[in-house]
Design a protein around this nucleic acid. Sequence first.
RNA 1: GCCCCAGUGGCGGAAUCGGUAGACGCAGCAGACUCAAAAUCUGCCGUUCGCAAGGACGUGCCCGUUCGAGUCGGGCCUGGGGCACCA
Length: 799
Amino acid sequence: MLSCINDNATRQRWVNMSRYNHREVEPKWRGRWAAANIDRALAPEEARGKPKAYILEMFPYPSGRIHVGHSRNYTMGDVIARFRRANGYNVLHPMGWDAFGLPAENAAMERGIHPKGWTYDNIAAMREQLKLLGLAIDWSREFATCDASYYKHQQAMFLAFWRKGLVYRKKQKVNWDPVDNTVLANEQVVDGKGWRSGAPVETRELEQWMFKVTAYADDLLAAIGGLDKWPDKVRLMQSNWIGKSQGAKIWWDIASVPEELRAMSPATGQSHARDPIEVFTTRPDTLFGASFLALAPDHPLTKTIAGFRPDVAKFIADCATLGTSEADIEKAEKVGIDLGIRVKHPFDPTWELPVWAANFVLSTYGSGAIFGSPAGDQRDLDFANKYKLPFKPVVLPHGADAATHAITDEAFTGEGVIYNSHFLDGLSTKDAIARAIDELVKREAGEATTQWRLRDWGVSRQRYWGCPIPAIHCAKCGVVPVPEKDLPIQLPEDVTFERDKPGNPLDRHPTWKHTKCPTCGGAATRETDTLDTFVDSSWYFARFTDAQNETAPFDKKLASYWLPVDQYVGGVEHAVLHLLYARFFTRAMRDCGYLDLPSGEPFASLFTQGMVVHETYRATRQVLKPPSVHQDQRGKWVIRGTTVEVTPSTPAAWGGDPADVDRAQRDAFKEFKLPPTWLTPDQVDSSSRPPVIMGTDIPVSVGPIEKMSKSKKNVVDLDAFVTDFGADVARWFVLSDSPPERDVEWTASGVKGAWNFVQRVWSLTEDHVEKFGKQGGSASPPAAVGAAHALRQLTHRTI
RNA sequence: GCCCCAGUGGCGGAAUCGGUAGACGCAGCAGACUCAAAAUCUGCCGUUCGCAAGGACGUGCCCGUUCGAGUCGGGCCUGGGGCACCA
């Protein structure tokens, strides 16, 4: 934008106009930069002493079109990349596409198109839009994760992880839609029902592929301390997610069980009628306040009881309709059922406690069983009160009187002095925990233990549009890896997505899964699960360092030169999962010999940018009459002078389908309904209050200011904006309007400010050139196409 | 429900150690210049009472610590992100 104008005629024209014409300037410089190839990262041996700088923004999912909300992330990375280059760094600033995922299959199902075509079409459109922004990106390294040339390396790495013992198979719960006969993602479960079928969701257990993230739990936690260029909030979220807690395992001996359970137990070996129940607790100091044991609905013992108790079976089924989302499970009303088992208190064998199943106990944490100590835990207290289970307080807050302190509706979760607890009386919370564990060990009723919240990563997806898992199921040899020479296992393209053909298209494909066992040569079937798309994004940053490599995921030397990423920029919504998985994957790649990176940390510095938000607009429901409504070129009924669609009501004289009515009859429509749909900002005139539909006086209701999203239609399309105002206005606005880590609200007044600023900068330079003329060599170095020239422009840009 | 973050004029925000709340900017309004517009320049710009001088209130809410709180402590409220199959 500050670049001098070398072309005299053009300059004269603009000076006369005295106005910055982005429609000429921006394409011109984009073309020059592309021709000079200034954005190409240098190979290490070319760099000759330049320090490296790897700048990366979280790569986009190709959902369709880019709106100005997306542009902030890339603009921030772009500014850093240009600044580093101007400072003499060898900069790697690449771009690619996180291209596998559910939306492509949804589009395929809804519109009868192929996920592959949909995805690559979107990529083509979005690439052109991104280029309009004039980003300093090394496009020679572009790839999409759905390219077989990318995922074949992912398959090879999967096999390497498998050999290293980081891959295993395990039963996992999934959401099952009994009508569509398909596995549902959590977002596809709405109020406990499948989003398409509306049928109550069931949970099923499937044998799934797992990555052993917990093998690195200690290191993933400890290394957070060294990530000093990460935001504190992200480090805290990661620590909490890994969730290391010290506590105790306690084994509760069985006192009595229902007759049916005793009868079905074997005389020797493991038996639910005899084996103690294991629970994990961080508060063994409150053991004397125990009131009950609670098991997860899918605890093995609960399931066994359900075998002869229909009420327990129904309880399990009811819990299953909540789906697998932890948020849904914990928000549900706390309910439980007495399993008819009694256990002995570890410190007093004459004290018997009931064993319940409860919907708030998670089978995925600890042993899937807890002991309830109601006075010290709100959930336990609510549960005890609801089912009239007796309890007593055992922690006396500092300053409280033991004679009068009582717990009714509100638990006391803080620290204090233990009382009502025999040998623990008078101890502090901390001392009582140690003392209780000593006693448990002495009585062989428990032991100290470390518990992690972090679970292993289930990577199996029963979906088509993902990376095929390179495994073969053989009746004789079991599950065997695909030999590396047979990679890639490519997705078949002749698949169908009709709704009435349920399940995974890979699984029902007539030929694809049938193959030979690589071990015995007998008939065998391929694994039809594909990998979680988080796997694709767990190593793409390494692929960018050597994106064209055909024989390996990347050259070890190149990856070791560029990694770690010096500045990673992305949304805080990825603060836990994506970043944690990438940290795991990098360690796994290191330990499988792909990478020379002792720390195993992929991102040295992280920045989480704020969102771009915008007002939302909704049409207010009303009925319109014919003159204000007409049919546009596509045959849709719209409000005259707008693109807002309305629904024709059936004419009074005709009772059939409106689509069948002939022209004359259509003109006879008496009424059109404007439903309360979301409206895009360009359909709304927001200069009047209340805002109205553009070109009409129909009022619009203004909704909350939200993150720009397709579903709320509060998006400003990038193409149209750049055509009207230019990329620099868009870039300047998203950078200047608000601190980068905070949200920025896209407003007309903000755009005007950015526009005025760009104009002012332009006229400043224009005036300068007019008054003082060009300063010969210093303003325009002789080697105008060389790096010096580019560097000078970038310096100007960066100032 | 649990974990994390944010709340200050019309808007973005500033106030670095507890010491004049609203720097700076955007938008807006008024004026100058201009045939006119744009650009530029000047002025006004938290709410409220007042002719004015000046006063009162004011940093999401309540309570506390302090001579003094946007800032420190406790308790809330609202909005946003995440909760392991959206990406």
